[in-house]
Write a protein that binds this DNA or RNA. Structure first.
Length: 429
RNA sequence: GUGGGUGUAGCUCAGCUGGCAGAGCGCUGCGUUGUGGUCGCAGAUGUCGCGGGUUCAAGUCCCGUCACUCACCCCA
């Protein structure tokens, strides 16, 4: 017999953790939804050329981590390794850029990178992302960063950090890049590092090794060589962040792996996640739309890692899912009671009460055990005695007390009671 | 792609210099013929990852292989 397993590096979520995953995904997008961002459902695979031109041919993500295949029409397609390029393609293709600006969009779903799996690093990874396109205003940079910060804080995370910098633009970065290259050429570096420097010298700046970092103390930094436009933009962005009470660390050596980033760039990290500590990141990408054949519209956005954020919550001991998953559980004993239970269950659900019942010919003991495992705080027992008396026994599972309610009143009685239960477990403020 | 670690019950793991396959949790039943959770008692569950070798004897030692995992790299 063959035993099938999920492909390597694909995290799956099943009860009870799947509920936490869902709650994290909801929490990550909630602040953006409150801020007017609208949902988009994107293609999960795209023309390979979109990522080559948009994300950048020299990036690791595109050059060696894409799942690329040829379809029956000999088209080269790739599973999306990130979301921004696809959003920009949609905006250009659907002419969304001809409407009101800025275009504010959010998305969520799986992305794919053929990497060696590790704690928090998966081949199928889940992200929640937002993009604000078409207006080059530092207030939007600040909004995007603040929405990510708000999402993490809403979940109850306290230990994450925000690293922020500016990567400059097409006007000032090439000059800086030359300066940095000249500096790196003057150092004695190992071959792998030299190759990295040739491909993207900025990448060398965030090398983790102390022996490399010690040589970089005097390295020129982008933030000290910004043009007037980039410098003003960064100053205003920080002023607006301060105005919203967002705290951050200046990270002049922060580098991102995707070529399209310009100006404001940021990364959220969590110290309890090990090597893969980035729980979210993003930045401005003013040249991206033009590079894939659209107008020269600016944009800024983030991608937040749903898997890693869940890991971060677990590492901080946060219960993302609070309270029971249902409010009421029905325990019918005997066929007459079962009919009553099926009808009552439907009526309760129509009232919006979350409820379930014991299925199968279970004896009272087994049915009560099922009731207990459901987590429902209230159990309705419907047996032969109750049927005969025209009542339902209502049991409080926390203190074990019970009372009888006429069958005709039970839906009203329970639904008014169920209204109270959710308020007892409101989200932290 | 490179390096390290680990594979034993559903889960978490113990098993010493080779000598009868174990614990906790969970699961099932009973204590209570209409009451869960707590408590007590009883019970079920193994290709010791897989293949080969050494040995009277291998979960244990050796070789190979696969899987998982941590780190490099990269990134969410």
């Amino acid at each position: 017999m063959v035993m099938f397993t999920a492909p390597k590096g694909v995290p799956e979520y099943f009860p009870p953790r799947s509920a936490a995953f869902l709650a994290v995904r909801e929490a990550l997008s909630a602040p953006a939804q409150h801020a007017g961002y609208e949902y988009v459902e994107l293609a999960v695979f795209e023309d390979t050329g979109l990522f080559v031109r948009g994300v950048g041919e020299s990036t690791d993500v595109v050059s060696k981590e894409m799942y690329t295949f040829t379809d029956r029409g000999d088209r080269s397609l790739s599973l999306r390794p990130e979301g921004t390029a696809g959003v920009m393609r949609m905006v250009v293709e659907q002419r969304l850029d001809k409407g009101a600006l800025p275009i504010k969009l959010w998305y969520a779903g799986p992305f794919f990178r053929a990497e060696r799996p590790q704690h928090g690093r998966y081949r199928q990874l889940q992200q929640v992302g937002i993009e604000a396109i078409g207006i080059d205003d530092p207030a939007l940079d600040a909004e995007v960063v603040a929405l990510a910060d708000e999402a993490y804080r809403m979940l109850g995370l306290t230990q994450f950090t925000l690293n922020l910098t500016s990567l400059g633009c097409g006007a000032c970065r090439p000059e800086y890049r030359e300066r940095l290259t000249a500096f790196l050429d003057s150092l004695e570096l190992d071959e792998a590092t030299r190759e990295r420097a040739a491909l993207n010298p900025l990448r060398v700046l965030d090398d983790k090794r102390d022996e490399v970092q010690s040589k970089l103390i005097d390295a020129p930094l982008m933030v000290n060589h910004l043009c007037a436009d980039c410098s003003d933009h960064y100053d205003l962005t920080r002023e607006y962040l301060r105005a919203q009470g967002v705290l951050w660390t200046e990270a002049p050596r922060l580098v991102r792996g995707l070529d399209y980033y310009t100006k404001t760039t940021f990364e959220f990290n969590h110290p309890l996640l090990g090597a893969q500590s980035g729980i979210g990141g993003g930045g401005r990408y003013d040249g991206l739309m033009a590079s894939i054949g659209g107008d020269s519209l600016s944009g800024i956005g983030f991608g937040l890692g749903t898997d890693r954020t869940l890991l971060a919550c677990e590492a901080e001991g946060i219960d993302v899912v609070q309270g029971p998953r249902i409010d009421v559980f029905l325990v019918p004993i005997g066929s007459a009671a079962r009919l009553v239970a099926v009808r009552t269950l439907a009526q309760l659900r129509a009232q919006g009460v979350r409820c379930d019942m014991s299925f199968g010919e279970r004896a009272m003991k087994g049915a009560m055990k099922a009731a207990d495992r459901s987590g429902a705080p209230v159990v309705l027992i419907i047996g032969e005695d109750e049927i005969e008396a025209g009542v339902v026994t209502v049991k409080n599972m926390e203190d074990g007390t019970q009372s009888t309610v006429p069958l005709t009143d039970v839906v009203t009685f329970v639904s008014s009671k169920a209204q109270i239960i959710p308020s007892e477990r409101q989200h932290r403020s």
